[in-house]
């Protein structure tokens, strides 16, 4: 017993090192699963305040750009107003409000921390559980993809960016609804990769890729990017293609969090199907 204690005292440096390494790695791999990101609520409070102060200051430098983006979004929304539509037919379709129920609600938020230079990138936004944000909600800017909420505290949330090795978005071609998936291979934040393209499909540069709406995260038809060029794989079952993101991930100002009103219902349906 005494020898054992002596042994530990003699080699305490190595044991302390191993202990701290193991603790760090446990932290790392646990939070990497996004289960317990909100476990450390008080750290959100500190980093949230510092990040938002930083953002308050630097926001002024990008005001011009932010205005431009907002006015573009306004123009798009204006185009959807009934007043902007010209009636080409004499038939009037009347619709009762009780027939329509909105499927998605949007919560606007400000990005207060953002990176694009790592392999695994996150954004922090200034809204949290208090504003109704929950994990697994999608985040978009305008009509373009940003990422997915993974950690929520009372006032802030962490978003798993599209630019993360775990991001695998279910997507489709806008022109023919063919399902594919989109990932980010690292490196340049402007280019991603489209995988699982069926061999027979004619892919042209400039084809638009949008979200498929198959998951509960993003609605159908959120813009992801356009095809740059096709990489044909002779010895595999699917082709891949390089994609240019439509989102400028390096200048995210105000984003919208997508709230799917029917999520619970969809998940219940899926779960009941699994039990069969």
């Amino acid at each position: 017993m005494r020898n054992l204690i002596l042994f530990f005292r003699k080699n305490y440096f190595i044991f302390l090192f191993l202990l701290l390494e193991v603790v760090s790695l446990i932290f790392f791999f646990r939070t990497n699963n996004y289960q317990n990101a909100a476990m450390f609520d008080w750290t959100f409070a500190i980093s949230g305040v510092i990040n938002s102060t930083y953002r308050d200051i630097t926001e002024y430098f990008s005001l011009k750009r932010t205005n431009l983006i907002l006015s573009e979004e306004n123009a798009i929304l204006q185009a959807r107003m009934p007043e902007a539509l010209y009636l080409t037919d004499t038939v009037v379709f009347s619709r009762s409000d009780s027939l329509l129920q909105s499927e998605y609600r949007f919560i606007n938020a400000r990005v207060i921390s953002n990176t694009t230079n790592r392999r695994n990138n996150f954004q922090m936004i200034n809204k949290g559980a208090l504003h109704g944000i929950e994990p697994h909600m999608g985040v978009i800017i305008g009509n373009k993809i940003v990422g997915q909420v993974v950690g929520v505290s009372r006032h802030f949330s962490w978003i798993l960016s599209m630019l993360h090795k775990e991001s695998k978005i279910s997507a489709k071609f806008l022109k023919n609804n063919q399902l594919v998936s989109v990932e980010w291979p690292g490196g340049d934040f402007r280019t991603g990769i489209v995988k699982e393209i069926p061999k027979h499909l004619l892919v042209l540069p400039g084809d638009t890729i949008v979200t498929s709406g198959n998951s509960e995260v993003f609605p159908n038809g959120i813009l992801i990017g356009t095809i740059e060029h096709l990489n044909e794989k002779r010895d595999e079952n699917f082709n891949t293609a390089t994609l240019t993101f439509l989102t400028d991930f390096n200048s995210l100002g105000y984003v919208e969090v997508v709230v799917d009103m029917f999520r619970e219902e969809k998940e219940q349906l899926k779960a009941s199907f699994k039990e069969l």
């Binding site: 390494e21 446990i26 790392f28 990101a37 500190i46």
Partner: peptide, 29 residues
């Protein structure tokens, strides 16, 4: 021992801001 403890605290403080809890701590320790 203080070297290790300080490195651990330093790494964790960086990690809090980048949501990579444990990553910088492991490398710094």
């Amino acid at each position: 021992w203080m070297l290790l403890i300080l490195a651990f605290i330093l790494g964790l403080s960086i990690d809090f801001f980048t949501n990579t809890l444990g990553l910088n701590a492991a490398a710094t320790v």
